[in-house]
Every structure is written in C-alpha cells, then in structure tokens.
Design a protein around this nucleic acid. Sequence first.
DNA 1: CCCTGTTTAAAACATACGTTTAGAATGACA
DNA 2: TGTCATTCTAAACGTATGTTTTAAACAGGG
Lengths: 212, 212
Amino acid sequence: MKIKKSAGSDARERILDVSEGLFANGSFASVSIRAVTSKADVNLSAVNYYFGSKKGLFQSVYVRRATLMNHERLHLLHEADEKAQTGGREVTLRELISAMLTPPIFWLCDEEKGLSVYIRFLARAYLDEASDMDNVLRQEVDVFDRFVPYFQKINPGLGEEDIYWRIHFMMGVMHHTINHLHRISLLSHKACKVGTWQETRDRLVDFCCGGF
Amino acid sequence: MKIKKSAGSDARERILDVSEGLFANGSFASVSIRAVTSKADVNLSAVNYYFGSKKGLFQSVYVRRATLMNHERLHLLHEADEKAQTGGREVTLRELISAMLTPPIFWLCDEEKGLSVYIRFLARAYLDEASDMDNVLRQEVDVFDRFVPYFQKINPGLGEEDIYWRIHFMMGVMHHTINHLHRISLLSHKACKVGTWQETRDRLVDFCCGGF
DNA sequence: CCCTGTTTAAAACATACGTTTAGAATGACA
DNA sequence: TGTCATTCTAAACGTATGTTTTAAACAGGG
C-alpha cells in the first residue's frame, strides 16, 4: 500500500509512459499489469512496488500531467485578460473557449512529445468507473470556475446554470472529438481528412462559439 | 460457436436485459460472464450457449435495439419533410437536428421502458475496443447519409466535409451528455438540476443548432 | 412410449489476473 | 570495507476469468 514518491529510477517513468499508452487505448480492466510491465521491460512486481496497486498506477498516470494542463488553461485565460485590458475591451467569447480547448487539442495533436497519448487517456478515464474520476474532475472544476465570471460579463443575460450547461456541452464535444478523431473519415466516406491541430481546434472552437 | 436465433426462452432475453445494464455501467472487460449469469439467474454456460461467446453477447445487445432507434430517426425526418412540403417550405435546421437527437435522448430519459439503459450502453460501446464498433457505426452512417442533402439544402454554402464534421460534433455532445448527465450537478456546484428529457433535449438541440 | 432436438445443469479446464513474499543486487555513505 | 536502505528479481499464491465438456431434464411429434 505504500506509494513511493521519491525521485524514481527511469523504470518508474517508463511504467508511466507505457501504461499511459495502454490505458489510452483500452479500458482499465482490459489493460493488465503484465502487459504494462512486459512492454516497459520491468519486473512484474514493479507496478505494485512503485504505485501500490493497479489503481494507484492509473491515478499516477493522471496526476503526472493534469496540473500542467490546467495551468496552461489558466495561463491562456490570463493572457487573454491582459491583452483585453491593454486594448480597453472585454475578453471575447472566442478567447475564453479557445483558452479552455487549446491545451488539450494542442497536446492531442502534438505527437512528438507524447502528450497526445495523455489526452486520449484522459478522455477515456472520464468514462471508466475504475478510476475515481470525481477527484479528477474537481481539479478541472476549480479551473472552470475561474472562467465563469468572464462568460457572465460577456453575456449578462445568462444565468450561472446556463453557463455550466454550456461548459458541460463543450467538454462533451472535445472529448468526443478526441476519442473519435479517426472516425471522422469513416463517417464522411473519406471526404474529411484530419488536418493540423490548428484546423481541428478552429473547427471545434467555431462550433462551441456557435453553441454559446 | 453456433449462435441460436430461434424464439428463445425468456432466459435468453433475461441475459440480454441484464448484460445491457452491466455493460452500460462498466467496460466490456470489467463485466464478467459470471456476473451476468448470476444476476440473470441462469446457468453459467447459458451465455456461451445462446451467443457463442462474450463478444457475441455484446453484439447481440447492440443489435437488439439499434435498428429500431435508427428507424425512429428516419421516421422523424420523414415527418418533418412531409410537414414542410404541405407547408410549402423547407425543412428547418432545428427539425433535422431534433430528428437525430430526439430518439436517443428520449430513450435515455424513458426509465420505464428500460431504453435508457441501452443508450448508455451504446455511448459506452463507442469507446470500447472489444466490441467491433465499426460495423455498428456503418448502420448509423447510412442513416446520417439521408440527412446530408437536407443540411445542404438549408445551407448551400456548406461543403459535404463541413456537414460531416458538424454531425460528428453533434454526436460528441450527445454521447457526452448521455454519459455525464449526472455530473452536471457536480460541475455546477449543484446549480444545475437534471430536469425532464424535453428540457435536456431542448438545451442540446439549441446548442447544436448554434453550432451549425 | 420412444425418439429427437433443444434447453438447463454441474463440473472441470486451462489460463490470466493482481498481489505478496522472500531474497538477491545495487549503490550511497560511514 | 561493512552497513543499510533502496531497487530489482523470481517464484508462488489465491482467485477469477472465458470456455468446454458431459450429462441430465424437458418438450413435442411419430
């Protein structure tokens, strides 16, 4: 049950990398510790040694990058706020939505750094009961709370309830886009191709701006 | 490997009902045949007897209701088309979107008939690699194809590609709404409550109409 | 009634799973 | 160099899994 947090050898990191990938493609139950350890080229007991349990591993995969992503969101919000203040105007709806969606979409499309895997992991983790995702959400909720006043300033007619519903919907579009990006070509009989991440992000932001 | 299709005893139906519920709440791998059979109060071997395998069971759960739902969608489309023709006008965007979203949302919120369980099952099945969902999608794709000309007539400026992207986004909002309906109250600090299905549907359709 | 096909039942099979244990290797520091 | 905590390894444990097998119960028509 003891969970090590000290500066791990690279074995620990390798386990996180590998399991992040496997959890991104399969459900919690369908990914076995043995699959993880053999692919990470570490001993079977390493997972239990470093993370205490399979569930501990899963949560560690989440934690490793979550804070950074939400930090990026707040950074973009802050940037937009500053730019608006110096320009003597309000933050635009598009800036707000873009601040929320750009980090995950950007990460998603950045194959090089392996962040894309994490995003797919995240989107899947939302649905998996095995991972205690209410705690996960709480971190995101805190971030979204910071956005709410801006939405209200832009559209004073909107109640808090309306705003939360729409944020909720937005996350829906995003997670679905993430999880089914490859399927757009099937759905469209190959008419659609997945382009750059900016293209995807713009389409998504367009859609969400319209929704708001 | 033989799959029975004849008029089954109610054991077969009971297995479908129970596993539909279990698969709606957990991943394919996390639901065991033993959990299904014991809850359905049938013998362990019944699943393999009736459906050949666990995967066969999963697909049978899907097939049992899929055709009906897509039929409802087409029926609503047809209805809207007729009403428009007699009125001497075009089918509206809202009618189109409503035709696509109403059946699943309606089913989702109809606790009585147990259809809601199927919708949650469906939304989850989209993400589960264990179930060969490309075949599943093909059935939906055929239905959506019937909608495309209408979208084009409403907005001739839109290319096929744009339309498929937006349909894709719409499905995203819907599946997310379905899977996380209970979470809206957490996200909003209990400001939002889940009301009637019409209310949910209207919010959803509003959002999607805006997106289009 | 017996025969035939279908359905249910119990048991066993082989394998895969998460976890634990006991000990070897390693490396830092005295 | 010897000590000690940390890291890694190999093996085993107990349990749960999907599936198969064998045979019993059942139903309907000749």
